[in-house]
Design a protein around this nucleic acid. Sequence first.
DNA 1: CACAAAATACCACGTTCGTGCGATTGTTAA
DNA 2: TTAACAATCGCACGAACGTGGTATTTTGTG
Lengths: 228, 228
Amino acid sequence: MKKKRTKPKAEIIPDSKNKINIWLVEDNISYRKTLTGLINRSPGLYCPQAFATCEETILMLQTEPFPNVILLDIGLPGMSGIEGIEKFKEITPNTHVLILTVYDDNDKVFNAICAGASGYLLKDSSPEKIVSSIEEVLAGGAPMNMQIARKVLKMFSRFTPKKKDYGLTEREKEILQFLLTGLTKQQIAEKLFISFHTVNTHLKNIYNKLHVNTRSGAISKVFRENII
Amino acid sequence: MKKKRTKPKAEIIPDSKNKINIWLVEDNISYRKTLTGLINRSPGLYCPQAFATCEETILMLQTEPFPNVILLDIGLPGMSGIEGIEKFKEITPNTHVLILTVYDDNDKVFNAICAGASGYLLKDSSPEKIVSSIEEVLAGGAPMNMQIARKVLKMFSRFTPKKKDYGLTEREKEILQFLLTGLTKQQIAEKLFISFHTVNTHLKNIYNKLHVNTRSGAISKVFRENII
DNA sequence: CACAAAATACCACGTTCGTGCGATTGTTAA
DNA sequence: TTAACAATCGCACGAACGTGGTATTTTGTG
């Protein structure tokens, strides 16, 4: 629920008409001013709000119209930027959150993206890069510094479906699927229109192939090793 | 094991000294020629080999020195580009594979990256973008078209640890961990130096909290929803 | 302190599981 | 035509599970 309201401000703020509305969350005062200036000097961009903490930002989201983009630092006093993303996204899911930080460790990058960040920039980015990234975000992109992009791809490939092959047949995989849902042998038999005994046999074979001897072991193996 | 060998060729090939060695895998003849030309006209780049299939490429990898970058199409006759990536990476893990294709569906992108692609370009990319992307790959980046980058981030956020809270206590989580390994109630009891009956009680409570009534259901829920 | 929540413990009963056998049919590759 | 494999079906039995109770002790918080 956006509330449109003209708010008197001491500073000179650019005309908001047809401009991209950008909020800034950055605790370093001088960098914040630099960025605000940079954005407001860019045609088409408009930065009416700048905060030092996520908490303040969240408060303002209660009363002000939602921004198109939030430019967010991660190393903030109080609530971290990562937590901030989640909160922002709960309040206004359509607002893009663009991370601008000094941190480039896997953990921060991973968590930020999982939390819903639309892009991830490092603070050594040039002013031009920052401005173009804001535009890119709105054009449906996901701007990242190249080292970040590489990290992201590497993280991704760690999710590789390794798919060790235990030589399961199609029927066995099918039955395994039903195991995962917590069905009993009898229930599986009914689902597949076969005898209880047949399911029993399949289960025996599955256990043999997976080198387990309980449902629990089988199910855990399926999830941990991305079988099926 | 790289074998350096000067190979007589009918075509005029640029000097390989200090140039980035790029191989091209693309089944469309005219596009292949266009790209080869583009690369060889770029200072610092050098494309001595171009193939129509992964199979040919793999053969050549047996005898020729490994390239720095392989520019790879996905929609190929015979072995698909996705499979190709895996094979290439097995043979020469340090060679970067840069995808250049028309396909932008989640599945292809996901699989390509999981297989180890260093970048993902669409065929509507400008020649300049292609050349700069090759350079970016070698500079440690991961060039992607902006729509691809967005897709990648979105896929990532699907891995979000949602962590629904079912109000499990620490002890209950502990017992849940042992469930995953396939232990019986008695075995869990021994591990924790408590009575079999206590484990039984905990299990009852866990099932209640997770709204399941079998070990299988509990285990599946744990994996699917990232509990614990 | 008081009260709630968590952890502990016990029992009984019917259900389901895992595993030891054996067996028939159909398909597929050698 | 064999041989191998997959899928089907059957039985029996001890072990483990899930669920209904009840009850005591420990821990933590207002």
